[in-house]
């Protein structure tokens, strides 16, 4: 879910990037990345571009499929994410580049497939980013984007955001809500079409998430975000009250193994 322009100031330090790789990737992004490259039918000899690659989970799945003749280029604006990505992908032939989604440093028509998992909602200039994705894709090439649907469709994240708003503050809540800030189907489809893509198709894709407890959910999510330090500085009573509120909100999703709830995403595929 890394971002390629600092639209929300929601950028990670490298410790957060490592936490992101350890918490969010196994929680959701590994599964959703595999699904995205499956939908795009990434195959040997494809040239793949992963935009806003974060810690590189989509790039890793794509690399497995394109070897030995294809190639994967992965770009992100955040050097901490790229450092964590390089570490996580030790033996994979992925080429990393620090770049902004709205000014890609690749030739026109260079790639067969462009992936952007959970990135679009963070871009400052989404039309420019989509125009760049269109420019670097070869005629007939494939685009695959995913974003989270709005918070109204997120029974697990809603209590987390509400709890942060009540106990920590507006900025913390807005930060945690930012992945859910751009999930309107019609708006995204119109944007992708306006960039020149055709055969645009949007699908709601729902994944089950599981965490061991509400406290582990709060800890994992905040450590993987710019809020790690903010939470660490809170008084113990505030943390307890925050966890109690989140637990209450998650009660309908709690079982003997912890907490399980769905996350709703929108996956948009298209052709150039």
């Amino acid at each position: 879910m890394a971002q390629t322009t600092a639209a929300h100031g929601w950028q990670l330090e490298q410790d957060s990037a490592t936490a992101y790789e350890r918490f969010l990737v196994p929680l959701l992004f590994d599964t959703s990345a595999r699904d995205l490259v499956d939908r795009l039918q990434v195959r040997p000899s494809d040239r793949v571009l992963d935009v806003a690659c974060g810690t590189g989970v989509v790039a890793r799945h794509a690399a497995e499929r394109v070897e030995p003749d294809g190639e994967v280029v992965a770009v992100d604006l955040n050097p901490g994410m790229l450092a964590a990505a390089q570490e996580a992908a030790a033996n994979r032939a992925i080429r990393w580049e620090e770049a902004s989604a709205d000014a890609l440093a690749l030739e026109d028509g260079h790639v067969d497939v462009v992936c952007c998992q959970q990135g679009l909602q963070f871009f400052g200039d989404r039309p420019a980013a989509l125009a760049e994705m269109h420019r670097v894709t070869t005629a007939g090439g494939r685009l695959g984007l995913s974003v989270c649907r709005p918070l109204d469709h997120q029974p697990g994240y809603r209590p987390l955001v509400d709890g942060l708003r009540r106990h920590v503050g507006h900025a913390a809540a807005e930060g945690m809500a930012s992945p859910f800030s751009f999930g309107d189907r019609d708006e995204i489809v119109a944007l992708v079409r306006a960039a020149g893509f055709r055969d645009v198709e949007a699908r709601i894709v729902i994944w089950p998430l599981r965490v061991s407890s509400p406290a582990a959910f709060l800890r994992g999510e905040t450590a993987s975000s710019p809020l790690g330090g903010v939470i660490a500085d809170l008084d113990a009573e505030v943390i307890d009250a925050l966890i109690a509120d989140i637990s209450e909100g998650l009660a309908p999703h709690t079982d003997d193994a912890g907490v399980s709830f769905p996350i709703e995403t929108l996956v948009v595929t298209a052709r150039r």
């Binding site: 050097p79 390089q86 620090e98």
Partner: peptide
């Protein structure tokens, strides 16, 4: 170029 990663930011 930092740590082998080109920084292609204007």
């Amino acid at each position: 170029v930092r740590d082998g990663i080109p920084v292609m930011l204007v």
